[in-house]
C-alpha cells in the first residue's frame, strides 16, 4: 500500500492535499478504507459548513461498522464529492483519487499532520 508523497495525513487516517487557491481536498486513506471494508454510506459535511481540525464532521458506514469522519484541517466546506454520495464504493476502489470526500477553504491546520513516510510508520504499529 503506498501513500502519495504529496499528501499529508492525520493520525485519524484522513489525507489532505496541498492547498491550491486556499482550498484543500480531503479524503480517507487506503489503510482506513481497507480497515472499514465496503463503504455503503457516506455522510459528508454540508457545503458552507465549518469544520474544525480533529473534530467529527461526518460518518462512513460499512457492512460491519460506522466510523466518524474527522476533519484534518479547519475551514469552510466548499464542495463535497457527489459521486461518492451516489457510489460510496469509490472510497474503497480509489481512496486517494475518485474517492475524495470534500474540499475545504483552509483557515488553519494543526501542526501535527504527518508526511507519507510518517503516516506509513504510524500505520505499521
Amino acid at each position: 500500500m503506498s501513500n502519495p508523497e504529496q499528501l499529508r495525513y492525520s493520525k485519524e487516517h484522513e489525507w489532505v492535499s496541498p492547498v491550491e487557491d486556499g482550498v484543500a481536498t480531503v479524503g480517507i486513506t487506503e489503510f482506513a478504507a481497507n480497515a472499514l471494508g465496503d463503504v455503503v454510506y457516506a455522510q459528508l459535511p454540508e457545503v458552507g459548513s465549518t469544520v474544525t481540525a480533529g473534530e467529527a464532521c461526518g460518518e462512513l458506514e460499512s457492512t460491519k461498522s460506522v466510523s466518524d469522519l474527522y476533519a484534518p484541517v479547519s475551514g469552510e466546506v466548499t464542495e463535497i464529492n457527489e459521486d461518492v454520495v451516489n457510489d460510496p464504493s469509490l472510497v474503497n476502489s480509489a481512496p486517494f483519487e475518485a474517492g475524495w470526500l470534500f474540499k475545504v477553504r483552509v483557515t488553519s491546520e494543526p501542526d501535527d499532520l504527518l508526511s507519507a513516510d510518517e503516516y506509513a510508520a504510524h500505520t505499521a504499529d
Partner: peptide, 8 residues
C-alpha cells in the same frame, strides 16, 4: 477470516 477482499 472476516473477509478476503470485498465482503459484498
Amino acid at each position: 477470516p472476516l473477509r478476503y477482499g470485498s465482503e459484498r
